[in-house]
Simulated assay, not measured.
Amino acid sequence: MGRHHARVVRETPGMELVAVADPGGDRFAVAGGLPVLPDVQALIAAGIDAAVVAVPTAHHEEVALALAAAGVHTMVEKPIAHTAEAGARVAAAFEDAGLVGAVGYVERCNPALLAMRQRIADGALGEVYQITTSRQGPFPGRISDVGVVKDLATHDVDLTAWLAQSPYATVSAQVAHRSGRQHEDMVLATGRLANGIIVSHTVNWLSPRKERQTVVTGEKGALVADTTTGDLTFYANGTTTTQWDTVAAFRGVAEGDAIRYALTKREPLRVEQENFRDTINGHPTTAAVTMTEGVHTLTVVEAILRAAAEGITVDL
Score class of each variant (00 low, 15 high):
Leu298Thr: 08
Phe139Ala: 12
Arg3Ala: 11
Glu302Thr: 12
Glu211Met: 06
Ala45Lys: 09
Ala46Leu: 10
Thr240Gln: 15
Val76Arg: 00
Ala194Gly: 02
Arg119Thr: 04
Val52Asp: 01
Ile312Asp: 14
Gly282Val: 11
Gly87Ser: 07
Met291His: 03
Lys210Phe: 07
Ile120Trp: 05
Leu125Arg: 10
Glu211Leu: 11
Leu298Phe: 06
Pro23Tyr: 03
Pro79Ile: 10
Gly126Thr: 06
Ile197Trp: 09
Asp122Thr: 03
Ala236Thr: 09
Ile48Ser: 08
Tyr261Met: 12
Asp245Ile: 12
Glu95His: 09
Phe276Tyr: 13
Asp315Gln: 13
Gly87Pro: 09
Pro23Lys: 06
Tyr235Glu: 15
Ala93Val: 05
Asp39Arg: 13
Gln213Ala: 00
Met75Ala: 09
Ile312Cys: 15
Glu77Cys: 10
Glu11Thr: 04
Thr241Pro: 06
Pro56Met: 08
Leu269Pro: 04
Thr233Met: 13
Ala309Glu: 14
Gly104Lys: 02
Ala86Leu: 10
Ala46Val: 13
Gly230Pro: 01
Ala88Val: 03
Val199Asn: 00
Leu99Pro: 09
Asp145Gln: 05
Thr160Tyr: 02
Asp145Glu: 15
Pro23Leu: 06
Tyr105Ile: 14
Ser172Arg: 08
Ala169Tyr: 04
Thr313Lys: 11
Val199Ala: 14
Arg142Trp: 15
Gly196Leu: 09
Gly101Lys: 13
Ala176Glu: 13
Gln213Gly: 00
Gly256Met: 14
Gly282Arg: 10
Arg251Cys: 08
Gly101Arg: 12
Leu152His: 07
Ala258Cys: 12
Ala70Gln: 15
Asn237Gly: 15
Lys220Pro: 01
Ile280Gly: 10
Arg3Lys: 13
Asp49Leu: 12
Ala46Thr: 14
Gln182Pro: 00
Glu293Val: 10
Gly196Trp: 07
His296Ile: 03
Arg10Thr: 08
Val30His: 04
Leu163Tyr: 00
Asn237Thr: 15
Thr297Trp: 01
Ala86Gln: 09
Ala169Val: 02
Lys78Glu: 11
Ile143Arg: 07
Val128Trp: 00
Ala309Leu: 10
Phe234Gln: 14
Val295Ala: 10
Pro138Asn: 06
Ser179Val: 02
Ala70Phe: 04
Asp145Pro: 01
Pro13Ala: 01
Leu305His: 04
Asp315Met: 09
Ser207Asn: 13
Val90Glu: 02
Ala66Lys: 12
Arg108Trp: 02
Asp22His: 07
Val36Glu: 02
Ala102Asn: 07
Val314Lys: 05
Val20Asn: 02
Val224Tyr: 00
Ala6Gln: 05
Asp96Gly: 04
Asp39Lys: 14
Val216Asn: 06
Val63Cys: 09
Glu219Asn: 05
Thr285Cys: 05
Thr227Ala: 12
His183Leu: 08
Ala66Tyr: 08
Val171Thr: 10
Arg7Tyr: 02
Gln174Leu: 05
Val72Lys: 01
Thr190Tyr: 02
Asp122Ile: 12
Ser166Cys: 04
Val100Tyr: 12
Trp205Phe: 11
Gly221Gln: 14
Ala66Ser: 14
Asp22Cys: 09
Val20Asp: 03
Ala164Ser: 08
Ala68Val: 00
Thr285Phe: 02
Gln243Ala: 15
Gly311Ala: 08
Gly252Met: 06
Ala64His: 01
Thr160Asp: 08
Gly180Phe: 08
Asp122Gly: 03
Met186Gly: 00
Arg117Phe: 02
Ser179Glu: 11
Ala58Arg: 14
Arg7Ile: 05
Glu127Val: 08
Arg209Lys: 05
Pro38Lys: 12
